[in-house]
Simulated assay, not measured.
Amino acid sequence: MANESPTNQSRAHKGRGAVSNLAGRFVDQVSTRKSDGWQLEPEALERIHTTATEEKARTIIATNSSPDLPFSQSINPYRGCEHGCIYCYARPAHAYMDLSPGLDFETRLFFKPNAAELLEQALRKTSYRCSPIALGTNTDPYQPLEKDKQITRQILQTLQRYQHPVTIVTKGQLILRDLPLLAEMAQDNLAHVAISVTTLDNDLKRRLEPRTAGPAARLRTIEALANAGVPTAVMAAPVIPALNDCELEKILESAQSAGAIHAAYILLRLPFEVAPLFRQWLHEHYPERATHVMSIVQQSRGGRDYQSEFSQRQRGTGVFAQLLQQRFRVTCRKLGLNERKLNLDCSRFLRPPQSGDQHTLF
């Protein structure tokens, strides 16, 4: 399959994170557009429209045994994400579909309309063992497409119907649409939410995460969730050296003031195609800082752009990573964050009835 080379069209598109349609690692042929000298004016950037394609999934619950993750099963209602966060570690997944992890990832989206149906089928199996299901582990379950498709909402309704615990990570203000549902689940200790706050700087947010809610809106979302009785955490992620790491303490303080009771952070991860895409983005938006940023990243990743080993991929190694961890721990201790565990209740789970099951009269 042909695709544009990473050196072509490497300019910022309004409202988009990636600055190119970098070819995925499985593509063995690329095309490059070159000037023939006849064009007098610079070529205008074409407006890139978002498309959404229906994907009929066969299964919906993904499982993992990673020691780095606080959950063993998850659901992703969407492939690709219009939020356009340039650092998103889910971008490489688009390469498996012969699409670019660059602009394709944030403009060529896929949704799973049968997700709730598949979920109920999975919960019905006698072999199923209840443990919290995580939403938002790959792409954001409250990205703009959710407003129309409402797949995340259908999943939550199914989980509530069978008293199944759920965790959510999002940076989308759309989660407040489902606040009544989440508040009811939280009363039964069946739900908690983490809101990702990467920066409090609106200009950096606009470049880094172009189609997401602003920093103030995310803090208001934390406040609304907390006031409704939903246990809420803040995810200071990713922490990017020499770009937003100086904000760590302020992000934690602001989130705690808004009502967050838990906090976590993740050092910038650059797996596979994310590394060259992030480098392009740096040179486009922060050229004077690009070399310094990547130097500290590599110092924290054993001399490479990324380390995939368990226990290291989330936190990194080296002096910068150690200082970052100390700063996080000291600030959390000062603010009273992470003082109690959020253990959701799995004992309430009601297995969906099998076909032919007799219903009790009492």
Rank of each mutant, 00 (worst) to 15 (best):
R211A: 15
A264V: 00
A258L: 12
A264I: 00
L174Q: 15
S196D: 07
V193M: 08
A242W: 06
L243I: 13
M185F: 04
D148L: 11
A236D: 02
Q173I: 14
L156V: 05
N189T: 02
I251Q: 03
K171G: 01
L243F: 05
Q187M: 08
D245M: 07
A216I: 11
H192I: 03
P165H: 13
I261F: 01
V169T: 14
L204Q: 03
T167E: 02
D148E: 15
A228T: 05
A186Q: 12
Q173L: 13
T152F: 05
I251N: 03
P215N: 12
A260G: 01
E253G: 03
V193E: 05
N227K: 12
I155N: 05
T232M: 12
G214R: 12
R220N: 12
T199D: 01
L179A: 04
T198N: 08
P215Q: 12
S254I: 10
K171S: 04
E247D: 02
L208G: 04
V169P: 01
R211E: 13
A242T: 09
V234G: 10
N189C: 00
S254E: 14
I155C: 03
D148C: 02
G214Q: 12
T158S: 15
A224P: 00
I155D: 07
S254F: 09
A263M: 13
N202C: 01
M185Y: 03
I251V: 15
L248C: 02
A183Y: 11
G229F: 09
L200A: 07
R206W: 06
A186D: 11
R218M: 08
V169A: 13
A226E: 10
D188A: 14
G172Y: 13
A194L: 05
L179E: 01
V234M: 14
S257V: 06
A191G: 01
E249G: 04
R153T: 15
D245P: 05
R218H: 10
Q187V: 07
Y265V: 02
T167G: 10
S257Y: 01
Q154P: 00
A264W: 05
D245R: 12
G259V: 09
L190D: 01
A255L: 07
K205M: 15
G259W: 10
Q163D: 10
N189H: 11
L248G: 01
Y162R: 02
Q187I: 02
A264G: 06
Q173R: 15
A228P: 02
L252Y: 05
R206K: 13
R153C: 11
G172I: 12
A216R: 12
I155T: 03
T199N: 07
R207E: 04
V193G: 02
A242G: 02
T152C: 05
L204M: 09
P215C: 09
G259I: 09
V230C: 04
I155S: 03
V230Q: 06
I151Q: 03
L243Y: 08
D178F: 10
R207Q: 10
Y162I: 11
A183R: 08
Q160W: 10
A224Q: 12
Q256A: 15
D203L: 11
